[in-house]
Design a protein around this nucleic acid. Structure first.
Length: 852
RNA sequence: GUCGGCGUGGCGGAAUGGUAGACGCAGCGGACUUAAAAUCCGCUUGGAGCGAUCCAGUGCGGGUUCGAGUCCCGCCGCCGACACCA
């Protein structure tokens, strides 16, 4: 290919137009109050999930979503919107630091190189980003506001009555003690069992463990003092407020399940005078409780264990603590547990039931203790069977049930005053009864845990916190950003002591005052970057009120960003964390919308040619740079969109790239042809003539379909329609310039370089052609009158099977169409000997003759 | 195990309940060329037939309907997420 002549000179005009857009700032969009801002235009905020600038550069998965949003951006601009379409870098993170550890080079250098590489790659794809708004989470200017937001969390608590974050100062005014206040902050310190990874020298969030483990690192459980964010306070709102969002239902469900709301009751049992509270979703089965289980870590275990059982209990607890959560579930095939020797009193009937510890009960969920009802809970049933514990049936299953352990709704039996009640009635009654006696209450529990927010690494935002007399304290906002000091080396110490503690001069502020040495996780920067884009260079505030009001508001919807496109891998964590931060900022009055992202679309994974996930080890990775070099950026863009529906998983095909490349070459040759000297000259077939009816029809049908398909994000079918249109125009002896121009406008959002080049060429040769860049021209309107045919083809069916086709005048009355159909020889031959029962006419489409 | 998504030619994929397979790839035939590449034209779901045509066909089995890839019920398979959450 290298020596072979290209089908069109993309390598010349693509860089040319990219330079043109950059120097003319074609896609820069001013903010309210800035020169050139047009308040009369509607706003549209199109956002890509910004990349982590890895050392290996862009892969073909990136341009998939980016091209989709780029097409929307260019289309909406042509439709007259003010479009905000920015790009930036999620540049903190472990790999840069691992690189620093190996090479001794500061992570900033490595990150900068990678960012430059990524930016260059994106620019070579011709994306319509407003590069003036580029953000980088590692920039001091950005870190400053990430830390500022952290301080907002630190200085706030969640007010249960109003269900809103409020300033800590309100608690101070109420006279709460320092300890009471610290226990309520949205950002707080807690001793928690965490996932410690010795080789990385950091603690990982539960969600991150699997990723690093699969990369060969070991992760162990340890109790450590950590910063936590009180996301659980927002659990209910994070579920409820999904309702107003235009997200895929599957993703909403994923988030709801992750948050894991369940309604039930807390019930107090007593163990030798000591109160133990259990959580259950089935308080109606209280009479069927035949034993109790405490989590091995439960604080009461020591108190209740009898001397005889002490040894067994200790051994079991030790074995459990060595296991991570993951191992606990991996080994979940078989239940295990140990009897403590103690018994608990069931509050409904005074029965004494044995108390066990077992690792199928988690300390971190509910109260860390359960009442076990083996007759109606599969886990309890399994456990009871294994240890020979009695099973008492207290819910009668409906007729026909065959399960040995019935967990559904039925009728209460053997349950005293609940007998005869349906499960929901029994639940309500027992809860009321427990309430009266002060033995329990209705409770809602969530699976969601608070967010472990500290890391022990270097390449992240330091906490804007100092320690004085064993207490934490925020530094002043005026001291932000607080940047990490330079270090001699970046090796983790192997102990959970954060790397920053090596910088003793930075840490030690004298008089026993020290800096917090933990850093924030990578999620921090990505939690609010979409806000910073609105006003990326603001030095006074994370964004101005005016910018916030314009770009995130104005359309009465809960979400500020109009369209957010990215991979499903962020379906839960990133999107949940960002929603949480956004809600805190909303509660405190810093943003005006309750949700960050109104519409969410997940692009599907692109597989290698072999149908396998792309990976270096499989050798099936496609590098976008190679594709651009061989076929051009427009071909890559177009192929990414032509492969199939955006949200679908689909394999790459170089032959497919060639296909769209050939299509673009055909478009090129509509305008250009090569002369005897092999020089591209204007195609002699072009003429400023009126198109014939058929040509008009296909061109206008194309404008209509492409516009509709872009709005539906059905880019593949839009492209196929443009192929049809191009094929029709190619066939013509005389090609009307006006028709070609309309095609170029429709194609412009997809293949901006080629179409701008051809438009400029046409403008230079034909007086009727507007010299304005297509990017700055309006989207063409189609003429519905041109889509109407004089005659339409009607399908004639007999008993639902196609037997004939005929042309009838458009708008012919049904009776006439029916008559024509029945007159068809083919129809006659198929209904011979049968009685026509019914004739169905679908105007303009078909006739179905029903006969038997 | 639970939840979600998907099953259509050799391949990627199109089809408001109304002609299944648009468009592209691959393949076959032809034109141009000394030849090839590029380009252009035609064919291309399977089966039967010289042919006009006919029969079958959207994972499998039922159902609703004049008519089902599309709607309903029950299975099977693949992919993804979660996974003892009381």
């Amino acid at each position: 290919m290298a020596e072979q002549r290209k089908s069109f000179p993309f390598s010349e005009f693509e860089p040319k137009w990219q330079g043109h857009w950059e120097s003319k700032k074609t896609f820069s969009v001013p903010n309210p109050g800035e020169p050139g801002f047009d308040a009369s235009k509607p706003k549209f905020y199109v956002l890509d999930m910004f990349p982590y600038p890895s050392g290996s550069g862009l892969h073909v998965g990136h341009p998939e979503g980016y091209t989709a949003t780029d097409i929307i951006t260019r289309y909406r601009r042509m439709k007259g919107d003010n479009v905000l379409h920015p790009m930036g870098w999620d540049a903190f993170g472990l790999p840069a630091e691992e690189h620093a550890r190996k090479t001794g080079e500061h992570p900033r250098i490595n990150t900068e190189n990678n960012v430059n590489n990524f930016r260059g790659q994106l620019k070579r794809l011709g994306f319509a980003y407003d590069w003036d708004r580029e953000v980088n989470t590692t920039d001091p200017d950005y870190v400053r506001w990430t830390q500022w937001i952290f301080l907002q969390l630190y200085h706030s608590y969640y007010d249960e009555t109003t269900q809103k974050a409020r300033p800590i100062s309100e608690l101070e005014a109420k006279g709460l003690s320092r300890d009471e206040i610290d226990a309520k902050r949205l950002a707080y310190v807690a001793e928690a069992p965490v996932n410690w990874c010795p080789d990385l020298g950091t603690v990982l969030a539960n969600e991150e463990v699997e990723e690093w483990r699969s990369k060969g690192h070991t992760v162990e459980r340890r109790p450590l003092k950590q910063w936590m964010l009180r996301i659980t306070a927002y659990a209910q709102r994070l579920i409820d407020e999904l309702d107003g969002l235009n997200w895929p239902e599957g993703i909403k469900l994923l988030q709801k399940n992750w948050i894991g709301r369940s309604e039930g009751a807390e019930v107090d049992f007593s163990i030798g005078g000591e109160k133990v509270t259990v959580f259950t979703t089935r308080p109606d089965t209280l009479f069927g409780a035949t034993y109790m289980v405490l989590a091995p870590e439960h604080p009461l275990v020591d108190k209740i264990t009898t001397t005889a059982q002490k040894e067994a209990v200790e051994a079991y607890r030790k074995a459990c603590s060595a296991k991570s959560d993951l191992e606990r579930t991996e080994l979940a095939k078989e239940k295990s547990g140990v009897f403590t020797g103690g018994t608990a009193t069931n509050p409904v009937n005074g029965e004494e039931i044995p108390v066990w510890i077992a690792d199928y009960v988690m300390m971190s969920y509910g109260t860390g203790a359960i009442m076990a009802v083996p007759a109606h809970d599969e886990r309890d049933f399994e456990f009871a069977k294994q240890y020979g514990i009695p099973v008492i049936e207290v819910v009668k299953a409906p007729e026909g049930n065959t399960e040995t352990c019935f967990t559904g709704n039925g009728t209460a039996i053997h349950s005293g005053f609940l007998d005869g009640l349906s499960t929901p009635e029994a639940k309500a009654k027992i809860i009321a009864w427990l309430g009266e006696k002060g033995l329990g209450k209705k409770t809602i529990n969530f699976k969601l845990r608070d967010w472990l927010f500290s890391r022990q690494r270097y390449w992240g935002e330091p906490f804007p916190i100092i320690w004085k007399d064993g207490r934490h304290e925020a530094i002043a906002e005026s001291e932000l950003p607080l940047l990490a000091p330079e270090l001699e080396d970046y090796k983790p110490s192997g102990s959970p002591e954060p790397i920053l503690s090596k910088a003793t001069a930075w840490v030690d502020l004298g008089n026993g005052v020290t800096r917090e040495t933990n850093t924030m996780p990578q999620w921090a920067g990505s939690c609010w970057y979409y806000l910073r884009y609105c006003d990326a260079r603001n030095t006074d505030r994370f964004m101005s009120r005016e910018a916030e009001d314009y770009w995130l508001g104005k359309n009465g919807k809960p979400g500020g960003v109009d369209l957010y496109v990215g991979g499903t891998e962020h379906a839960v964590l990133h999107l949940l964390y960002a929603r949480f931060w956004h809600k805190v900022l909303f509660d405190l009055g810093h943003v005006g919308t309750p949700e960050p992202f109104q519409k969410l679309v997940n692009q599907g994974l692109i597989l290698g040619e072999d149908g396998q996930k792309m990976s270096k080890s499989r050798g099936n990775v496609v590098n976008p740079d190679d594709v651009v070099a061989e076929y051009g950026a427009d071909s890559l863009r177009l192929y990414e969109m032509f492969m199939g529906p955006l949200e679908q998983v689909k394999p790459w095909s170089m032959k497919g790239v060639e296909g769209v490349y050939r299509f673009l070459a055909r478009v090129w040759r509509l305008v250009m042809e090569s002369n005897q000297e092999d020089v591209w000259v204007l195609n002699a077939k072009l003429a400023e003539v009126d198109p014939d009816k058929a040509t008009d029809k296909v061109v206008h049908a194309t404008i209509k379909k492409v516009g509709e398909d872009i709005e539906d994000m059905s880019f593949n079918t839009a492209i196929s329609q443009m192929m049809v249109c191009t094929n029709e125009l190619t066939k013509l002896e005389q090609v009307p310039v006006s028709s070609v121009l309309l095609l170029l406008k429709a194609l412009n959002p997809f293949a901006p370089h080629l179409t701008e080049e051809l438009n400029a060429t046409l403008a230079a040769s034909f007086a009727s052609v507007d010299k304005t860049d297509l990017a700055n021209q309006p989207w063409p309107a189609y003429d519905p009158a041109k889509l109407i045919e004089d005659e339409v083809e009607i399908v004639v069916q007999v008993n639902g099977k196609v037997r004939d086709k005929m042309f009838v005048a458009n708008g012919a009355p049904n009776e006439e169409v029916e008559k024509l159909a029945l007159a068809s020889d083919k129809v006659k031959s198929f209904i011979e000997g049968l009685t026509v029962r019914k004739v169905i006419v679908v105007p303009g489409r078909l006739v179905n003759v029903v006969a038997n």
